[in-house]
Computed example of a mutant assay.
Amino acid sequence: MFLHACPCGYYGDVSHSCSCTPQQIKKYLSKISGPLLDRIDMHVEVFPVKYKELENDSITKNSLEIKKDVNFAKEIQAERYRKESIVFNSQLKPSQIRKYCKLGAEEKRLMEEAFHKLGLSARAYNRIIKLSRTIADLAGSEHIETEHLAEAIQYRNLDRKFWNL
């Protein structure tokens, strides 16, 4: 799902200026409800690519390498959930989250801070935990580490950035 933050599409864009009034932006953003945003796992802000970036050869992974990583993570999940009625982390129910996505003390502190600071709902909390489990799987980590959780939390910033005007 792709969302602009205003009618002209440039609100928050560092390379273009937005021509919308604050009232237009607020009205536009009010069409997307908080409960709908809560059902979207990842909110990623994407800016237009500059020509020089297209010419840059510093791509770290190609599509085949990424596919290999994803398939590896899928295998980890299939093995982990072989006795469950699910296949992927995204399908975890709250009781399964507690079983398969245990957080250490430092990760619990980070999650609590994010929960309060970002005003997260219970649904957003669970989505972040499941996403951090997937990030850990992609990294080949048995446990959810602080870096996995922090990455998952950063994917929840747009609902707070644009929808809390």
Score class of each variant (00 low, 15 high):
127 R>G: 11
130 K>F: 09
161 K>T: 15
115 F>L: 08
143 H>G: 00
111 M>D: 05
123 R>G: 08
163 W>F: 15
141 S>L: 04
120 L>D: 07
103 L>E: 11
161 K>W: 01
109 R>F: 11
134 T>A: 03
156 R>Q: 15
130 K>S: 02
90 S>C: 12
151 E>W: 10
79 E>A: 12
111 M>E: 02
141 S>E: 14
87 V>G: 01
125 Y>T: 03
129 I>C: 04
99 K>E: 14
83 K>E: 15
164 N>L: 14
163 W>P: 00
84 E>T: 09
79 E>P: 00
79 E>D: 11
127 R>M: 05
102 K>L: 14
116 H>G: 00
130 K>N: 07
132 S>Y: 03
76 I>N: 03
111 M>K: 00
75 E>A: 04
123 R>H: 12
145 E>A: 06
87 V>E: 13
115 F>S: 08
97 I>D: 02
109 R>T: 15
146 T>Q: 01
148 H>F: 06
139 A>P: 00
85 S>R: 13
107 E>R: 01
100 Y>D: 09
80 R>H: 06
159 D>P: 05
108 K>V: 13
119 G>H: 07
132 S>I: 02
142 E>R: 05
98 R>S: 12
135 I>T: 02
144 I>F: 03
139 A>G: 02
126 N>A: 07
154 Q>N: 15
147 E>H: 06
154 Q>P: 02
87 V>L: 12
119 G>C: 09
104 G>F: 08
101 C>D: 03
105 A>F: 13
88 F>T: 10
118 L>Y: 11
110 L>I: 15
83 K>L: 13
117 K>C: 07
119 G>K: 08
